[in-house]
Amino acid sequence: MKNGIIYIIGLMLLFACEDVVDVDLPEVEPKLIVDGLLRVDKSQEFVNVEIRMKETTNYFDENLPTQVENAVITYGKPLNGDIFESLAFCSLAEREPGSGVYIPDPNFSSDQRIRTSVVEPGMVFILELTHKGKTYYAQTEYAPTVPIDNLEQGDDTLFDEEETEVVVTFTDDPDRDDFYVFDFGFGEFLTVEDQFFQGQEFQFSYFYDDSLTTGQDITVSILGATQDFYNYMDLVIEQTTNNGGVFQTPVATARGNVFDITGLDNIDIFDNVERPNDFALGYFAVVQTYSSTLTIE
């Protein structure tokens, strides 16, 4: 009987210790997220323009698609300062209501798609959009790249026997300083610069943490990058894990190139050096890409 009473008292004390703790999280002003990575595949007739707009929500909540009042991409080759040669425009419209995905407006009076044949080194692209009464501006230069020479499966492992090694080989362009972003799928990216192999063939191994199955196809892409985009991706990769993509949950400290220029009358200071908190999350980049597919053995 005494043992039974002690047991019951112990259970009562155990359940009495289960208190619900409410944590008051600070109110955070929602920020616009711009997933504006445009990949230029020269084997295709048009650039695949898809810009995803989202807005941050409260802590632990999923970021939701949002709509912009207007969005346009301006592009051309600069001749002198702000003067452009053959300036062209691409007006954007939401692909489906509520999707937050913006594509060249199919209902515009003229074809708004961007032909890959006109995209060349030195071309500058400018994204301007309006979201909830605020005007945003992003500028980037087209970043060319080189193809993947060879992609093969290796036998080595780094930390775990379940890892899968892929060996990537490419040859750097000797006439320019290149920055690369490799997309290994599954939200996994890697940044590489040519500082130590200028103009040479370069080979490296990448290890997939998750076990890949025999017969599974994986696609590896090499993306060109400006130095600013390379630095941004390098920072984001360090701060994120495999969460569905580096633009899925942008880190607030990783500042991109989309700035809030509302009320500014001098576009020369569009980067908001005097307004450090006025920017959107994400990045706008236009990069050349090559892809190679490998079947896991």
Rank of each mutant, 00 (worst) to 15 (best):
E120A: 09
E120T: 11
P121V: 02
P121T: 01
G122F: 00
G122C: 00
G122N: 01
G122S: 03
M123T: 01
M123G: 03
V124W: 06
F125D: 05
F125N: 00
F125L: 01
F125W: 05
I126Y: 01
L127T: 01
E128L: 05
E128W: 00
L129T: 00
L129D: 00
T130D: 11
H131S: 10
K132N: 13
K132G: 03
G133T: 00
G133R: 05
G133S: 00
K134Y: 01
T135L: 08
T135K: 14
Y136E: 04
Y137R: 04
A138E: 05
Q139D: 02
Q139P: 04
Q139E: 15
Q139W: 00
T140V: 13
T140N: 14
T140Q: 06
T140C: 11
T140Y: 05
E141K: 12
Y142S: 04
Y142Q: 08
Y142I: 05
A143H: 11
A143F: 13
P144H: 04
T145Q: 09
V146Y: 08
P147K: 13
I148W: 10
I148D: 06
I148N: 10
I148R: 12
D149S: 13
D149G: 07
D149H: 10
N150V: 08
N150E: 15
L151W: 11
L151K: 07
E152T: 15
E152G: 01
E152M: 14
Q153K: 15
Q153R: 15
Q153M: 14
G154I: 11
G154M: 14
D155C: 03
D155P: 06
D156C: 02
D156P: 01
D156I: 02
T157V: 14
T157R: 13
T157I: 12
L158W: 13
L158D: 12
L158M: 13
L158E: 12
F159E: 13
F159R: 06
F159H: 10
F159Q: 11
F159P: 01
F159K: 03
F159G: 04
D160L: 12
E161C: 06
E162Q: 14
E162M: 12
E162H: 14
E163M: 10
E163L: 09
E163N: 07
E163A: 04
E163G: 09
E163P: 08
T164W: 04
T164M: 06
T164G: 06
T164F: 01
T164Y: 04
E165F: 05
E165L: 08
V166L: 10
V166F: 07
V166I: 15
V166Q: 05
V167K: 15
V167I: 15
V167D: 06
V167H: 10
V168G: 07
V168K: 04
T169P: 00
T169L: 08
T169D: 09
F170D: 02
F170P: 07
T171L: 08
T171A: 10
D172S: 15
D172W: 11
D172V: 05
D173T: 02
D173C: 03
P174N: 10
P174A: 15
P174C: 09
P174I: 10
D175C: 03
D175P: 00
R176D: 13
R176W: 08
R176L: 09
D177P: 04
D177T: 15
D177L: 13
D177K: 15
D178K: 05
F179V: 02
F179Q: 04
F179C: 05
Y180D: 03
V181R: 09
V181S: 05
V181T: 10
F182V: 06
D183A: 03
D183Y: 01
D183G: 07
D183R: 00
